[in-house]
Amino acid sequence: MKPNRKKRNQAYFRHHRKRVIQRKKRLSAHRGWVAKFDGAFSKGKIHCSCWMCSEKTNRLGHPKSELSRIANCQEQLLDYDF
């Protein structure tokens, strides 16, 4: 037996694609980015992946737990100096 699925028409998918594009256009306008076509925003992420804009903790090659361990050691050293 096949599961009971909802049938969705083209208008449903068109609506959600338009909604996503509008959201990404607002974000890109805020950043000052320009796209030739609106459809470029229909798929994928919109963010800068350079090392300065990246908020990922492993950009230095260390996992988050290791970075917190290093910060903790540095804090202990500062406390020891005083």
Rank of each mutant, 00 (worst) to 15 (best):
residue 34 V to W: 09
residue 32 G to F: 05
residue 65 S to V: 13
residue 38 D to Y: 06
residue 65 S to L: 11
residue 44 G to D: 01
residue 69 R to M: 06
residue 11 A to K: 09
residue 4 N to A: 05
residue 37 F to V: 07
residue 25 K to T: 04
residue 3 P to E: 06
residue 76 Q to N: 11
residue 29 A to F: 06
residue 25 K to N: 04
residue 28 S to C: 10
residue 28 S to N: 09
residue 45 K to F: 09
residue 52 M to S: 14
residue 33 W to T: 03
residue 37 F to N: 11
residue 77 L to I: 09
residue 45 K to D: 09
residue 49 S to M: 11
residue 60 L to C: 15
residue 21 I to A: 01
residue 20 V to C: 00
residue 3 P to M: 06
residue 55 E to T: 15
residue 45 K to V: 10
residue 2 K to S: 10
residue 24 K to W: 04
residue 77 L to T: 01
residue 75 E to P: 00
residue 8 R to Y: 11
residue 75 E to I: 14
residue 82 F to V: 11
residue 39 G to R: 09
residue 6 K to G: 06
residue 73 C to A: 12
residue 44 G to F: 00
residue 4 N to M: 04
residue 57 T to H: 13
residue 77 L to H: 05
residue 53 C to F: 03
residue 60 L to Y: 13
residue 44 G to Y: 02
residue 7 K to H: 07
residue 19 R to A: 13
residue 40 A to Q: 15
residue 2 K to V: 06
residue 60 L to K: 12
residue 15 H to G: 00
residue 50 C to V: 03
residue 72 N to H: 10
residue 66 E to P: 00
residue 40 A to G: 10
residue 19 R to E: 12
residue 22 Q to M: 05
residue 65 S to F: 06
residue 14 R to M: 06
residue 49 S to P: 00
residue 1 M to Y: 04
residue 57 T to W: 15
residue 1 M to P: 02
residue 39 G to E: 15
residue 40 A to T: 14
residue 18 K to N: 15
residue 14 R to W: 04
residue 6 K to E: 13
residue 38 D to A: 11
residue 36 K to F: 10
residue 62 H to R: 05
residue 28 S to R: 03
residue 46 I to N: 00
residue 59 R to Y: 03
residue 69 R to F: 08
residue 45 K to T: 13
residue 68 S to N: 12
residue 39 G to W: 13
residue 5 R to I: 04
residue 7 K to Q: 08
residue 13 F to E: 02
residue 61 G to F: 03
residue 19 R to F: 12
residue 70 I to R: 14
residue 18 K to L: 14
residue 30 H to C: 01
residue 17 R to D: 11
residue 66 E to G: 02
residue 30 H to I: 10
residue 49 S to A: 08
residue 66 E to D: 10
residue 27 L to G: 01
residue 17 R to Y: 00
residue 10 Q to R: 13
residue 6 K to C: 08
residue 64 K to M: 09
residue 43 K to R: 15
residue 8 R to P: 02
residue 17 R to S: 12
residue 64 K to T: 14
residue 2 K to N: 08
residue 64 K to W: 15
residue 70 I to G: 00
residue 78 L to C: 05
residue 46 I to M: 08
residue 42 S to K: 11
residue 66 E to K: 15
residue 45 K to W: 02
residue 45 K to H: 10
residue 36 K to G: 09
residue 5 R to C: 07
residue 55 E to D: 05
residue 15 H to T: 05
residue 61 G to D: 02
residue 82 F to M: 05
residue 39 G to K: 14
residue 27 L to R: 08
residue 62 H to T: 04
residue 1 M to E: 06
residue 20 V to F: 02
residue 30 H to M: 11
residue 44 G to K: 00
residue 18 K to Q: 13
residue 41 F to Y: 15
residue 46 I to D: 03
residue 46 I to V: 14
residue 4 N to D: 11
residue 71 A to T: 12
residue 72 N to E: 14
residue 51 W to R: 14
residue 54 S to L: 03
residue 51 W to M: 08
residue 42 S to H: 04
residue 63 P to V: 04
residue 42 S to Q: 14
residue 29 A to I: 08
residue 18 K to H: 05
residue 74 Q to N: 15
residue 49 S to D: 13
residue 66 E to C: 12
residue 42 S to P: 00
residue 60 L to D: 15
residue 3 P to Y: 07
residue 1 M to G: 11
residue 30 H to Y: 10
residue 48 C to S: 13
